[in-house]
Amino acid sequence: MRTTARAIVPIILVVSISLFVEGHNLPGGGFIGGVLTTTAFAIIYVTFGLDFLERGVFGRDPDAELRPTRERVVDVYRRVFAVGLAIAVTSGLAPLVLGYPFLSQSFVVLEGVPLYDHLEVASALAFDFGVYCVVVGGLLTILSVVGAE
């Protein structure tokens, strides 16, 4: 199980990011990319236990006394959620400042990018990134809080 997890978690993460990046005009997008990222974390939780991220990433011993809702990791997840929401809203408001209707989108195509040759950078990507953060933050909060009970 641990060996499989080591192999598939990076693959899942890469696929989820590629889904997220091409979401504006191909199947994919912030939501499905976020869900896929969450499954990678869920696999880590299932294989290595709930405290692995706390220990491995933050290098701290999770205090058994603390309620799961107050742990550092959960706090980070919540912050990701809030920041993602803020990004999505700001990206919707930005066109207003420039004199276009709420949520207007545009895109530029960059030529000659290494590996990709040409890359479309759509303004929808900012909104999608917000959605991505909201999904990852929200689902991981639920997973770790409910999982700890």
């Binding site: 809030a82 920041v83 929401l85 803020a86 809203v89 408001l93 207003l96 709420f102």
Partner: peptide, 12 residues
Amino acid sequence: LVALVTAVVTLL
């Protein structure tokens, strides 16, 4: 927009 922005700012 006012309601949406207020909600997000209070969340932050």
